[in-house]
Design a protein around this nucleic acid. Structure first.
Lengths: 169, 169
DNA sequence: ACCAATGATGATCTTCCGGTAATCTAATGT
DNA sequence: ACATTAGATTACCGGAAGATCATCATTGGT
């Protein structure tokens, strides 16, 4: 019933807790605690985002998760597409059978335009834009982790073991 | 993922097969055949719409279904509301926890506006507007049943047993 | 009265999404 | 090597939406 699934919402909340590429990795565990997203579910979600190249996850000692791209280069559309795919954008609003190029329904054009507006907006909003404007505990989290209000440069007390920004697969 | 559920789409397709109030009742069975909506599922759907006062259904000999209001007075929003309710309109696009009056998310205003546009559109489109503009078999159906292109007056070969336009419960 | 026509209803099934728990596996420090 | 610390993976649970089937209940015709 909404253009973004609950899980995409989770992705937004979760990624807001991460550091810029090259920054210190944050534990899935911590993110789960601060966002209220169930740990195991979050783990899968993170993994999915990692496969799509949006974050880098690393296991073992000093493992954790870091953004794979600067927060200014991760849009809401990226997240939506990574999680919910793209198929839903192509269906007739009312599910009319013959609705298509040759015989569009009365709402066809309206819906195309509306969708375009929505997608344009999702494209124009980046993770960096989402860093403020809410109070769900993440700000506190960011403070505790030395992250400035708006996502900033990686902190000076730099990573002992910086994670690669992109891994082969 | 879309503002209208599949079932609401069904409702649109189904109601396009019905006659104006006072017209001849059409069988659920027939509607199911012509629209491809599963018979039993459609039956329940019709029942739901009947409870909401959008159609009148009658069982037994010469039973069937008829619109309870003129097609010009049944909007898409009526159908959407009857079937999917209204709760989904109130949620934050991204499911952010604190998103509300005091601390709206970056997309809050955009989403409010977009939703308003969508709802306005659903309100402005009536069943009568939906009668043409597609080719899903319903036009053939309407022809077979003496229904003009756009929904028109009830045919002259009038109902032997017209259904009441509104029933107590 | 009875029967046939016709919508209503309840039980059940499938699929998808969100969620949980247990276990596996990779990375690291010692 | 080995223990510890992480994320990854697998199996399963539960609810909602969509769908099916069998059966019930009402109505009109005879």
């Amino acid at each position: 019933m909404l253009p973004l699934s609950q899980t995409t919402g989770y992705a937004v909340r979760a990624l807001r807790c991460l550091q810029e590429p090259g920054g210190l990795p944050v534990l899935v565990e911590e993110v789960a605690e601060y966002t209220g997203i169930p740990r195991s579910y979050l783990s899968k979600l993170i993994h999915k985002l990692a496969k799509k190249g949006l974050v880098v996850a690393r296991r073992g000692h000093h493992g954790g998760v870091v953004l794979a791209r600067p927060s200014t280069e991760i849009t809401l559309e990226d997240l939506s597409e990574a999680i919910d795919g793209v198929a839903w954008r192509k269906r007739c609003l009312m599910g009319l059978l013959g609705c298509g190029g040759d015989a569009p329904c009365v709402l066809h054009d309206f819906w195309q335009e509306t969708l375009e507006q929505i997608l344009a907006r999702l494209r124009s909003v980046t993770l960096a834009d989402l860093v403020q404007n809410h109070d769900d505990g993440v700000d506190r989290f960011r403070a505790n982790h030395g992250l400035a209000g708006p996502l900033s440069e990686p902190p000076q007390g730099a990573p002992t073991v910086p994670l690669a920004t992109a891994s082969g697969h």
